[in-house]
């Protein structure tokens, strides 16, 4: 029988509640189906019939295959990550369960940072596996992809996911319930995506959401330096969100 620790608690939470499996399966699914959909979209629409109209699609490129994955990953994948992280980070949502942890640990940061690290690790692992699957499918169906672009794109996507989980940690310190935490987090992330979209390239360069689809852009014409401002902002915002989460949770009463 193994001795317990906060790290093992969070690991068992991911494992026994099947949340790690959910994250990995969602990203793997989109990793495998994204490039496949792009490759055979024209055939699929042709088989369905378009009422006599002929739809002409440009020949799909490897960047389209990866872009299809990152689009799905930044929507459905992010939704699953936020829900999984909220379940771990909203540890104050049930008072009696919270008493068990909070009355034994005087340093709240230990609870927050452990739950954050494990949730972020699960999200990044799922995303990386999905990216690996998308890479393989794209290489087989659409053409080769530069290793450097894939690695840098995965790294930037991972930085964004770490930020997204930090947003969940901050939301959990403000909203008490799991669903309220997830809703608040998704609201913040959606607002950022809208601001990045409305603000054009100038604003987009600084927004964390830009990092989630960096791989496909890098494969087209993007340069690594283009993502430096967003990376710096994302890293600073991640630290700020975590510091805020710890400070607010410390002050919160049960």
């Amino acid at each position: 029988m193994r001795a317990m620790s906060l790290w093992r608690l969070e690991w068992l939470r991911l494992l026994r509640t099947h949340r790690l499996l959910a994250v990995v399966l969602v990203y793997l699914f989109f990793g495998l189906t994204g490039p496949l959909t792009v490759r055979y979209l024209e055939n699929l629409l042709g088989a369905l019939g378009t009422g006599g109209a002929q739809v002409q699609f440009p020949t799909p490129t490897p960047a389209d295959g990866i872009a299809q994955f990152t689009r799905n990953a930044s929507q459905i994948g992010l939704l699953v990550v936020v829900l999984v992280a909220a379940a771990a980070l909203a540890f104050d949502s049930r008072r009696e369960m919270a008493v068990f942890l909070r009355s034994r640990i005087t340093k709240v940061y230990k609870i927050v940072l452990t739950a954050y690290a494990m949730s972020a690790a699960a999200a990044v692992s799922g995303f990386a596996l999905g990216m690996l699957a998308a890479w393989y499918e794209t290489a087989v169906l659409l053409g080769s992809v530069a290793v450097a672009d894939m690695l840098l794109g995965t790294l930037l996507g991972a930085v964004f996911l770490a930020f997204a989980v930090a947003v969940v940690a901050l939301s959990a310190a403000v909203a008490r319930g799991t669903l309220a935490t997830a809703g608040t987090s998704l609201g913040i992330l959606l607002t950022m995506a809208i601001v990045a979209g409305l603000g054009g390239q100038v604003t987009g360069r600084w927004m964390p959401t830009t990092l989630s689809g960096a791989t496909a852009d890098l494969m087209l014409a993007g340069r690594p330096g283009d993502y430096l401002p967003a990376t710096v902002v994302t890293l600073v915002a991640t630290v700020a969100c975590l510091a805020g989460a710890v400070a607010l949770t410390r002050r919160r009463e049960l």
Partner: peptide, 29 residues
């Protein structure tokens, strides 16, 4: 503070932990 323990009226724990893991975690914390 770490030698002060509170037991609520209806204690609850993560349902996927075993009894041994709950007490082991309490000892660690």
């Amino acid at each position: 503070p770490r030698r002060v323990a509170l037991l609520p009226d209806t204690p609850q724990f993560d349902p996927w932990l075993t009894g041994f893991e709950v007490v082991s975690l309490a000892a660690h914390l």
